[in-house]
Design a protein around this nucleic acid. Structure first.
Length: 184
DNA sequence: TAGGCCATCTGGTCCT
DNA sequence: AGGACCAGATGGCCTA
């Protein structure tokens, strides 16, 4: 799997407003921005958003939006940005909660979700195994057991197969970590 | 250069 | 009604 550690690509509200309104298309590369800006940061948003905004205005036809409509759209864009930032923060927190992942290789979102899912399954199976060794017959009232059993039934699995064994989950988990590291 | 990943904008729909 | 959520479109960055 390819790896990347891209810097956050954000723009200021001012840039956002300008780009969205299409007052001007900001191409930082033409404004003499030096290397003090990261490659990622100075790239995309300004130029790309400007062209997208222009495309949007073309869809709106001559004259563009009314002022209040534009204002509402800008506010909506800002809310959407904040929402996505919160989502990305949650992804980052999830990445950091998954052990045995090399810090210098950032997991993609899909990798993060997949690994987290299997890590949870691995832990769940481990807990069930430990508890069953202590109490050979899992307590029928155990919420964990009930939940796990329902999940297995819903996904077509069964507690008796290898999926239910912690080794199975751990193997899948470690295999995925390995494949992510290897870039496969 | 192609493909993967990502941020952002946008309009539609759902929810409170 | 307004905000949250969602998915499609767009285009930049990075790696192989």
């Amino acid at each position: 799997m390819k790896t990347k550690n891209q810097p956050p690509r954000r723009r200021t509200p001012l840039q956002d407003t300008e780009a969205s309104l299409g007052e001007r298309t900001l191409d930082v590369s033409q404004q003499g921005s030096g290397p003090e800006l990261s490659k990622g940061l100075r790239s995309r948003t300004t130029r790309a958003a400007g062209t997208r905004a222009e495309a949007g205005r073309r869809r709106q036809g001559p004259g563009g939006r009314r002022d209040n409509s534009v204002q509402r759209r800008l506010e909506s864009n800002e809310r959407e940005r904040q929402r996505m930032h919160k989502l990305n923060n949650a992804f980052q927190a999830l990445r950091e909660a998954i052990p045995h992942v090399r810090a210098d290789k950032k997991l993609s979102k899909i990798e993060t979700l997949t690994l987290a899912k299997n890590y949870i399954k691995s832990l769940t199976a481990t807990i069930l195994t430990m508890s069953s060794s202590r109490f050979p017959d899992p307590a029928p009232g155990s919420k964990l057991y009930q939940h796990y059993h329902q999940q297995q039934q819903a996904t077509g699995g069964a507690l008796g197969d290898t999926e239910a064994q912690p080794q199975g989950h751990l193997q899948r988990y470690s295999t995925q970590i390995h494949s992510f590291r290897e870039g496969s």
